[in-house]
Design a protein around this nucleic acid. Structure first.
Length: 272
DNA sequence: AAAGCACCCTGTACGC
DNA sequence: TGCGTACAGGGTGCTT
């Protein structure tokens, strides 16, 4: 599943192929992929536009055009790649952007939950997102302030994009393990030391996952913009490892459901 | 503020 | 072998 590190890797991979290219036309095979606009409005707004920049905000890929922005949310199974136009497509490719160099930017999404928005300003979509956990100016004091008054459990809070932007199920579980904090802990019960541990764990896990070019699980869901798998799955400590031995203490990893989502943790290393 | 739920969608894993 | 069904996943919107 694309989370912050995967989206960051995709964005970096798209930069060289896309910046400076002009989108000459668009084909949409699944209209619901296009957020807010009709397919006609979307196609008209995108055609003829040159790509100015590629960025990321939370789990959104941001494609800056000279007039407006494309924001792409990959959800669980969305993929973006740039390929020669004559390369065969398949039934899961829902949007094709023709480029002026004989290639196409393609959006492929088996689950069809991904969305592509065309907006005048990214804030139309990203205004409600919490801070970027890897931003230089995001400090442990900022993180402490965010936690204050939050009476919910840690795990659902870390998944809440309005709290912090970019964590998903994998990296939330990994960060909690690295911080040795139980996913059911009440967020406002953390000591200063525990807050600092969680802050560092989130940043370290995300940085290392970016360095590994993301996580590609056995289901093969995620690949980067050139179709390559990531490498962080080899460093996963708890996610998807229910029943398997903890890498730290060898006791079995537990899998529970919190807020309707699976949570994986070590009941020995992550004490409530 | 927080928790629970249905919804969106389809591949996979299961039971019979 | 082939069918039906449950489930996973992130985000949104609704209700409690």
């Amino acid at each position: 599943m694309p989370e912050l590190p995967e989206v960051e890797t995709v964005a970096r991979g798209l930069r060289d192929s896309l910046v400076g290219r002009t989108i000459t036309g668009v084909t949409v095979g699944w209209p619901r992929t296009i957020g807010r606009l009709t397919v006609a409005e979307f196609a008209e707004g995108v055609a003829g536009q040159r790509v100015a920049l590629i960025g990321r905000r939370g789990k959104y890929v941001v494609i800056g055009l000279y007039r407006g922005y494309l924001l792409v949310h990959l959800m669980m199974s969305g993929r973006l790649c740039v390929v020669p136009t004559d390369e065969p497509s398949d039934q899961h490719v829902h949007v094709l952007f023709d480029l002026d160099d004989g290639r196409q930017l393609r959006f492929r999404d088996v689950r069809k939950f991904g969305r592509i928005y065309l907006v005048a300003d990214p804030s139309e979509i990203t205004a409600g997102l919490g801070p970027e956990p890897l931003a230089d100016d995001f400090t442990v004091e900022d993180f402490s302030r965010l936690l204050a008054g939050r009476r919910g459990r840690l795990k659902p809070l870390l998944l809440n994009q309005r709290f912090l932007a970019g964590l998903g199920n994998i990296y939330a579980d990994e960060a909690l393990f690295a911080a040795r904090l139980h996913p059911m802990r009440k967020a406002d019960s953390l000591t200063v030391d525990e807050q600092a541990r969680l802050y560092e764990a989130i940043r370290t896990v995300l940085r290392q996952a970016i360095a590994s070019r993301g996580t590609t699980l056995d289901d093969g869901g995620y690949t980067d913009a050139s179709g390559q798998a990531g490498g962080y799955q080899d460093r996963i400590a708890v996610y998807g490892r229910g029943g398997k031995p903890c890498l730290r203490c060898k006791l079995p990893i537990e899998r529970i459901v919190i807020g309707g989502r699976s949570a994986h943790f070590c009941p020995h290393c992550q004490v409530e």
